[in-house]
Design a protein around this nucleic acid. Structure first.
Length: 475
DNA sequence: AGCGGAACCT
DNA sequence: AGGTTCCGCT
């Protein structure tokens, strides 16, 4: 039976989020619901365009209108299904399974246990927890995680051979705590010296969505941006993350004055953080904002970001992540016309490359499964790490892969992980030369796409469960 | 409520 | 592969 709800006819532009009443294309609707294109698996994967449950859950979790139905609660990554029947109903609508119920949905959720995408918070009804260490964070280019001390250990791309730091601390360093609201944060710690070899150190803990803040309530990042997936290599506003020039410290184009990023789209701490970014990032700020250290509060303006909700940032991904993970996330569409619907939340697409964390073993350990009470995440489940090998996704571009650490660039930011400085990002010069169009914006557009990425595109920050792709899980 | 096996579907 | 459906069990 095909209820014709979500078919390949679903084309971008689509509503930026799954919001009842947002109609774009009747043929792409299911019972009046339309869904963001990014919610589908990439075309390259089998069964593509079928949303996965964990994806759907994240989708719901991201929407404030469903806070009464499902919401982040408790430990980091933990969420509670407040209204199981309603969630099941929504899932049923989504999948056109009118007979869906929580029993069935929960069976599907249990299906994720083995994949270590989710686990149950013992002792808390309807409470589950995402194993965010089991995700691939793509498009965190400026956080060159693959080059961090943490990830170097198992970096498939540099043949890392040292033992990985799989300690919970290391994991925590990957997902650091949200800084206190009172704590001034900056993406770059300039407290030490002037820019130079040690000048600009990227602070992971200044990225709100990367961490959890309050001890009792830790909302994971706005994991899935509200941006519709764009066709491959469609960078409507002309930004091409693949192009070296896009991030060249000397070749970063200014956005047109008064352009697509009104200042109110930059709530704190992002705004101030962005403004402190060295070029090219600071240039993303509207004129007058860069360097102003604006201190508009998080409640600020019309950004639509609820107080306390981590703002999504949108920085162009650093091309160094290209070999590691798809970098076409969001950036092309962030400023696109199609995004008018919900460009209310700034998005910072920070490229991590493709980083996943997981164990070689698929199963939860008995310890893990025994751990109850939901007091604290089982360290075991989050304690292992691997770099997701996406190399087969870019076989044509193997030569493009960075040899991490092959060359140093003093101008590039560095990562500070728990106070330890990470290795610097690969130099822009390591990128393959790409012809540049004379047009200031078109110079950022793809001349010829490097290769078809293999994760869902156009996400400002895309979480890619390693268990759902062609990647690392061994069953 | 929650679990997991099994058959089945797409 | 990723569920969906059913069901017995705890």
């Amino acid at each position: 039976m095909d209820c014709n709800c979500v078919s390949d006819l679903l084309l971008p532009p689509v509503p930026t989020l799954w919001t009842p009443g947002q109609f774009i294309k009747p043929s792409s609707l299911c019972n009046g619901f339309a869904f963001p294109d990014w919610a589908y698996k990439p075309e390259s994967s089998p069964g593509s365009r079928q949303i996965q449950l964990w994806h759907f859950i994240l989708e719901l979790l991201q929407k404030e209108e469903y806070q009464g139905v499902i919401a982040w609660q408790g430990d980091y990554g933990e969420f509670v299904i407040k209204d199981p029947d309603e969630v099941a109903r929504l899932w049923g609508i989504r999948k056109c399974k009118p007979h869906m119920n929580y029993d069935k949905l929960s069976r599907a959720l249990r299906y994720y246990y083995n994949k270590r995408i989710l686990h149950k918070t013992k002792g808390k009804r309807f409470t589950y927890k995402f194993n965010f260490s089991k995700v691939v964070l793509v498009n965190y280019p400026i956080l060159d995680m693959a080059n961090s001390p943490f990830f170097l250990a198992q970096n498939h791309f540099n043949g890392g051979s040292t033992a990985p730091d799989c300690s919970p601390e290391a994991i925590q360093s990957l997902f650091p705590r949200l800084p206190d609201s009172s704590r001034a944060t900056s993406l770059f710690d300039r407290s030490t010296t002037a820019p130079g070899p040690d000048g600009d150190k990227l602070r992971l803990d200044s990225l709100p969505f990367l961490g959890s803040g309050a001890p009792c309530y830790s909302k994971p990042p706005s994991l899935l941006g509200p941006y519709p997936r764009s066709p491959p290599f469609d960078y409507p506003w002309g930004f091409n993350p693949y192009l070296p020039g896009a991030f060249s410290l000397n070749n970063c184009p200014k956005l047109p004055p008064g352009s697509l990023y009104p200042s109110q789209f930059y709530p704190n701490p992002l705004q101030s953080s962005l403004s402190q970014l060295p070029n090219p990032f600071s240039s993303l700020l509207p004129p007058g904002e860069a360097g102003s250290g604006g201190d508009r509060g998080q409640t600020g303006g019309t950004n639509g970001t609820a107080g306390g909700q981590p703002p999504r940032l949108c920085l162009p991904p650093y091309p160094g992540s290209l070999p590691l993970g798809r970098s076409d996330i969001g950036n092309g569409t962030v400023l696109g016309e199609r995004d008018r619907v919900e460009t209310t939340t700034p998005v910072l697409g920070l490229g991590l490359g493709a980083v996943s964390v997981g164990t070689g073993s698929d199963r939860q350990s008995p310890t893990e499964r025994r751990s109850g009470g939901g007091v604290k995440a089982d360290p075991e489940s989050d304690s292992d790490l691997e770099i997701t090998d996406l190399s087969d996704c870019s076989s044509e571009n193997e030569n493009d892969e960075f040899t991490v650490g092959k060359s140093l660039n003093r101008d590039r930011p560095q990562i500070v992980l728990d106070g330890k400085k990470g290795s610097i990002l690969p130099p822009v010069s390591a990128l393959p030369p790409v012809p540049v169009s004379p047009h200031p914006l078109k110079s950022l557009m793809p001349i010829s796409p490097p290769h078809l990425p293999c994760h869902p595109p156009s996400l400002p920050l895309w979480l890619y469960m390693t268990g759902t792709g062609r990647q690392t899980l061994s069953k």
